[in-house]
Design a protein around this nucleic acid. Structure first.
Ligand code: MN
Ligand code: MN
Ligand code: ZN
Ligand code: ZN
Lengths: 169, 169
DNA sequence: ATTATTTTGATAATGATTCTCAAGTTCAGG
DNA sequence: CCTGAACTTGAGAATCATTATCAAAATAAT
């Protein structure tokens, strides 16, 4: 949807890949899932992996349709499910709205989602992470994972207006 | 992990109310919403307000049906929506699961869950809450809600042993 | 009581996601 | 290159939670 810049997808590794090299990468991933390589899966994977945004199934469906392949929603959902089952992609869900998917980057981050337009902003905050560790430790736990999702209203005039005109909180 | 464990509603004030007093309380709330007092609304409110857990619309529908009144799902959803619009109840929507509602008077809390035995500990950390506000503000958002779930291994010898001997995940 | 205003609930509609299954594709082996 | 068994696809039906419709019923101000 919109385009307020976030954490840029700052990759560190080399990203000069020939199309053929990229294809080999994608195929390798598909095979790691124990699945057959199909045009649809290649297309979906290319989009999700290359993108620096959070895609909905609809986004991916449209993107794949645009290029060449005819594809069904079922295929998109099926493959995304397989990818997130093996943690290649992360599924971000917010009540009511369609799920969003992103390539699982190595870098940890949390999400701030606009409850009006669905925009997702990534952030990472070392202080919060540290406090989480402390909380866990103080309760006798070894912390192994966490989910932090913030919800709010983004700065777009549209969303601000909707928020202010809504029944007051 | 099938159920959503929560704070027992460890009481705050005096809760010795005659049925009539309780009814007056409930009516007052309904009128504060600018709505007419109906049997259905009384029933729904009584359940949500008294409960010590998170209810789904289904839960409430069943509970009300059991007692006396015939009631429709639409009525449950409508009234819950009105209640959460005015923040009398909190709506929690996660993933694809049905929304859950809880009376808002409970202290805010987050959860720390043992991934081995499933034990859930609640905690509350003002510093984290404050940092969340700051993060949202710095990204131009008005923060309206958040979900913070920590996962780890609790201090029980059993869970510690399982954790140490487990192959890495 | 009267009656204007709300509310209700059965049922249809919605929207995201999943399921079904006939037809099409992939790929290991020959 | 063929073949065929196993896998995959996509159109459409099915689910599931939630919302919208709307005529009939309940509420509350007069
Ligand atoms: Mn992200
Ligand atoms: Mn919290
Ligand atoms: Zn927004
Ligand atoms: Zn444990």
């Amino acid at each position: 949807m919109s385009d307020i810049p976030l954490l840029p997808n700052h990759q560190s590794g080399p990203k000069k890949l020939t199309p053929e090299q990229e294809n080999q990468q994608l195929k390798k991933i598909i095979r790691e899932l124990g699945l057959k390589v199909t045009q649809q899966r290649m297309d979906i994977l290319r989009i999700v992996k290359a993108g620096d945004r959070h895609f909905t199934a609809q986004d991916i469906f449209e993107a794949v349709s645009e290029t060449n392949t005819s594809i069904g929603f079922a295929t998109v959902y099926r493959f995304l499910k397989a990818l997130s089952a093996k943690a290649f992609v992360t599924e971000v869900r917010m009540g009511g709205m369609p799920a969003r998917y992103e390539w699982s980057s190595q870098e940890h981050h949390d999400h701030l989602t606009c409850t009006v337009c669905g925009k997702v902003v990534e952030f990472e905050n070392d202080e919060i992470e540290k406090l989480q560790e402390e909380v866990a430790k103080s309760l006798g736990f070894i912390l192994t994972d966490h989910i932090l999702e913030l919800f709010g209203v983004c700065s777009s005039t549209h969303c601000q207006k909707v928020y202010k005109s809504a029944p007051e909180s």
